[in-house]
């Protein structure tokens, strides 16, 4: 038995505090609304629409991250080139930028004052107050989570496997599809979950770009502002429920991966 000194007790105390700090408010929230109120909330069309929009928009942003981010993640995992560190830093930028600023920045590019905005308007693409706008900012905030997770997954696949595949006659693309991707699909799924979880909880950037149509976080904010705590809680419970499902899927996936290793 190892000697357990004061430091050990300190770690236990801090651990307990952190647990309480995280769990207490969540527990309070989850038990605050009577089941009847929760059921009633689910019949509220506005709530259902908001949660559905949140799910759809974050799903769409994850799909965009998959299409645009996967090749970039592979590039970062496999190749060394001048400016790679800068590229990695740029990919991480959305994590550190305050979220309302993200919204403002996106609107700056999408407005009439900007060439890109004019092109978008001519093409009939509206960012301000549209689902498109919501998807754009959700992609913006979710991309780093997707790219970094998938890059780690690609890095874990030995380049020698790809080398052997190439020497056996497979092109780079065939090697990616037959070797690299099947061996790192868990990371891809984990990346999709991470980025959509991040997107689903986004408020600051969304509220700038589109107050309407309302996503779940914006609706919760509106109910809180307009009617107070009691009325915002049931909606919050449902949103937390959705997030927990995503979180549980992610944990299950990573735990199984660790077991297989």
């Amino acid at each position: 038995m190892r000697y357990k000194g004061p430091f050990h007790h300190l770690t236990l105390c801090c651990g307990g505090l952190v647990l309480a700090f995280i769990l207490l408010p969540l527990w309070e929230l989850m038990t605050s609304s009577p089941p009847a109120a929760l059921a009633r909330t689910l019949k509220d069309g506005e709530v259902v629409r908001a949660i559905r929009l949140s799910l759809l928009a974050s799903g769409a942003s994850a799909a965009i991250a998959f299409i645009l981010g996967t090749p970039l993640a592979y590039l970062l995992a496999r190749f060394d080139f001048r400016g790679k560190r800068w590229l990695e830093a740029i990919v991480d930028l959305p994590v550190v930028i305050p979220h309302p600023v993200v919204g403002i920045a996106v609107l700056g590019v999408a407005g009439r004052d900007h060439a890109l905005g004019r092109i978008l308007l001519q093409a009939g693409v509206r960012i301000l107050g549209s689902v498109t706008g919501i998807i754009v900012v959700l992609t913006f905030v979710g991309l780093p989570f997707y790219i970094n997770t998938v890059r780690d997954g690609f890095e874990a696949v030995s380049p020698r496997l790809e080398n052997v595949s190439r020497s056996l006659g497979a092109s780079m693309a065939e090697t990616f599809l037959r070797i690299t991707l099947p061996l790192s699909w868990r990371s891809v799924v984990a990346g999709l979950i991470m980025s959509s979880a991040r997107a689903i909880s986004e408020f600051g950037a969304v509220v700038i770009v589109a107050y309407h149509p309302m996503t779940a976080p914006v609706l919760i904010y509106e109910r809180f502002e307009g009617y107070g705590l009691r009325y915002s809680q049931p909606v919050a419970v449902w949103l937390v429920g959705v997030c927990l499902v995503l979180f549980a899927a992610l944990r299950a996936l990573t735990l199984r991966q660790r077991k297989e290793e």
Binding site: R160, N163, V164, R166, S167, M172
Partner: peptide, 28 residues
């Protein structure tokens, strides 16, 4: 490119494709 050189390579760590069976490996 490597796939057009008609050169086989066998590494020290063998680098077998872990998600494929032996049969699928040798027929790859």
């Amino acid at each position: 490119p490597p796939e057009r050189r008609e050169v086989g390579i066998v590494y020290q760590d063998q680098s077998l494709f872990p998600h494929l069976t032996v049969r699928e490996n040798i027929r790859y």
